[in-house]
Design a protein around this nucleic acid. Structure first.
Length: 630
RNA sequence: GGUUCCAUAGCUCAACCGGAUAGAGCAACGGUUUUCUAAACCGUAGGUUCCAGGUUCGAGUCCUGGUGGAAUCACCA
């Protein structure tokens, strides 16, 4: 039985025996660093039973526990806080077990199967920093689930079809001069992205020209009238009603109308999509060719990020799946049909709106595809839970998706979870692919690895390493810094990234933690060369720095459980950082390899080894590697 | 306009179920190397936890109202 269970049991016994409080729900917390002790019990809630002062109540309980629990060596009382002190023998025993058993994570995911969908890129543009966060987060969370004993299916749903894909296809066809990744030397996904941007540029030009036509002018005037009227109703309107301001708001409001009703390019794209859906040979061939380029590009980006998948779905295979379920919903009465033939679900009783699930022309919308894919996942895997790693801008969407699945009485509906994470914003605001204000994934990875190289060379500690080893080292350090930067922040919070400030390598960073690891690795190597067998031995005494490490290492498995339960890899990052920091202090204060007494030396080496193993374990859960030297 | 989320040191972030004197890193200033890797360690300085109420023995954390910001409310994906 672990110590907290013992303490809980004995405290309950103390409350029952002293004050006749039965079946009290009690809990301990770690003693605040400013006070002496290891675990703290707060007695305020029990004063109405004890009818004594907080200090006296705490003392009574402390006295009882110290007598009953041999590991409790003492206690102190501050107001209503009972601080229990555990003996050094207890903590040394913990360290001994750590050394003997290695890292053991309580198996909270036993016999549970989870499908985690992450990455889910569009095949019309290269990946950017936001995608890196998604991938790194998704992959890390899968590693965490695995460490907790879950069966995990890492799943990628590739958005490989649709109007946006046709935009880059059409632009390449019109203005590409048959250029290929080979002929241009441009990575495939970047080349396709170039034509997606080109389409947008040409489309905007066409739109601007059209606004000058009588037809365009009429629409602009209508917009202006409506806008002025609308703003005049507001008390303190700060809307820009100058000609430029009106033009800008018109462009953003009318863009979709223009694309659908007036644009030549728009109608060409729509024709192309129709041809794609009809299986037109030429369009399919172009689609396959350009998607192939993108996949080649993605493969190398994924490889560098170190992420992988067990199952890949392609939207081109799955986008029709939801239709059968629309039929099912109509028959069960979950959905209803409007006059124009479109199909809807009424979610007003859930505090949401009516939501369309099928257009009047019978084609499916985004959410219908997700309904179909959820069902496919369940057929393929029969999972207990299925998780979507998707940005928080889609929270409403997943709320609706789950409600629909519930109304369709799907047995898996309750297993849906949206792992919603915050956007990565630039100082100027949100990244926008179409406007080119993105931090490109490939460029950023290149940059951060180059920084790692520069820093390493400046420190000049890598004599004798081969160029292959150095390349690997720079990759481990640079990618580590980047991933850690993204993962140390609570997943649900947004991240501000300023491209002008490079990613740190000092302080709370991956290289700091990796450095701590190499210190350990290098000591263990030296120990090995001296034929020292690293086994746990009891030291003569326990220093504060040593105890702190044991306590932190002891807390690590709980952090791994918590990270899984809270959908939050940052808890692992924090735990590992605390360990690395405590190790560096310990390393600074005490001689390890050179300790005079053999038992002290072996104790410290053993403790360091456990530390190194935990750092490596934790980093592997973040998808980050550790070097043996740096 | 409705709904949801966010606001902590100059900057970037911590703070487990409501617990004690709110912690780190960066930046600034000062110190530490004949000892296992100084990408390190130690110290100084930096706070009305956005504001106003409320609940509680106790509030950064819960509730109400306000201020500021973001997302969303598409027959886009």
């Amino acid at each position: 039985m672990d110590i907290l269970s013992v303490l809980t049991e004995k405290t309950q016994a103390a409350l029952a025996s002293l004050y006749e409080i039965n079946e009290a729900e009690i809990s301990f917390e770690k003693t605040n660093a400013n006070f002496k002790g290891d675990y703290t019990f707060v007695v305020f809630p029990y004063l109405r039973f004890s009818r004594k002062k907080p200090e006296d109540t705490a003392s009574d309980i402390g006295e009882y526990i110290q007598k009953e629990v041999e590991q409790v060596s003492g206690y102190n009382v501050v107001k209503g806080f009972l601080n229990l002190e555990l003996s050094n023998d207890y903590w040394l025993d913990v360290a001994k077990n750590q050394a003997a058993n290695g890292i053991t994570i309580p198996n909270i995911g036993k016999d549970k199967k989870v499908v985690v969908e992450y990455s889910s890129p569009n095949t019309n543009k290269p990946l950017h920093l936001g995608h890196i966060r998604n991938n790194v987060l998704g992959f890390s969370y899968c590693q965490i689930l695995l460490a907790n004993g879950y069966e995990v299916i890492k799943n990628n749903l590739i958005n490989d079809r649709g109007i946006h894909i046709c935009k880059s296809m059409l632009a390449w066809q019109k203005w590409g001069n048959a250029e290929t990744p080979e002929s241009s030397g441009v990575k495939g996904d970047h080349l396709v992205g170039k034509y997606y941007v080109e389409f947008e540029k040409q489309f905007q030009a066409e739109f601007a020209t059209w606004i000058e036509t009588p037809e365009g002018n009429t629409e602009l005037d209508k917009h202006k009238e409506a806008k002025v009227l609308e703003e005049s109703k507001k008390k303190d309107s700060d809307a820009d009603l100058s000609n430029d301001g009106i033009l800008k708001s018109f462009k953003s409001n009318y863009k979709n109308n223009y694309f659908n009703n007036n644009s030549g390019l728009g109608s060409e794209v729509k024709t192309m999509l129709q041809k794609w859906e009809d299986g037109d040979e030429e369009v399919i061939a172009l689609w396959k060719k350009m998607n192939g380029w993108v996949y080649d590009g993605f493969d190398s980006t994924y490889k560098r990020m170190g992420v992988s998948f067990d199952k890949i779905y392609y939207e081109s295979d799955t986008y029709l799946l939801g239709k059968a379920m629309v039929q099912e919903g109509l028959e069960s009465g979950a959905f209803f049909t409007k006059d124009d033939g479109s199909v809807w679900i009424d979610l007003t009783d859930e505090g949401l709106d009516e939501k369309i699930v099928q257009r009047a022309d019978g084609t499916s919308v985004y959410i219908t595809q997700d309904i179909g894919t959820a069902d496919l996942k369940y057929k393929d895997f029969g999972m207990d839970k299925f998780i979507y790693v998707v940005g928080n801008e889609q929270e409403y969407h997943f709320k609706v998706l789950q409600l629909i699945l519930k109304k369709l009485n799907k047995p898996y509906a309750d297993g849906l979870y949206h792992l919603s994470y915050g956007m990565v914003d630039l100082p100027e605001g949100k990244m926008k692919s179409r406007e080119g204000t993105v931090v490109d994934a490939d460029e950023l990875m290149e940059e951060v690895v180059a920084t790692a190289q520069k820093q390493t060379e400046e420190l000049g500690k890598t004599d004798g390493m081969s160029s292959d080893e150095l390349t690997e080292l720079y990759e481990t350090l640079g990618m580590g810094a980047l991933k850690y930067y993204l993962l140390k922040i609570d997943a649900k919070k947004r991240i501000m990234y300023d491209p002008k400030e490079s990613i740190d390598f000092q302080g709370n960073t991956a290289p700091f933690i990796q450095f701590s690891y190499t210190r350990i690795a290098s000591m263990l190597k030296a120990a090995n060369e001296k034929k020292i067998d690293v086994t746990f031995e009891m030291p003569n005494e326990l220093a504060a720095e040593e105890k702190e490490l044991i306590v932190l290492l002891n807390a690590y498995p709980e952090a791994v459980n918590a990270a899984a339960n809270h959908y939050n890899p940052s808890e692992i990052a924090n735990a590992v950082y605390e360990i690395a920091k405590a190790f560096n202090k310990f390393y600074h204060e005490h001689i390890i390899l050179g300790a005079k007494e053999t038992n002290v030396r072996n104790f410290r080496l053993s403790l360091s080894k456990t530390c190194g193993e935990t750092i490596k374990h934790g980093f592997s859960l973040l998808g980050i590697g550790v070097p043996e030297r740096m």
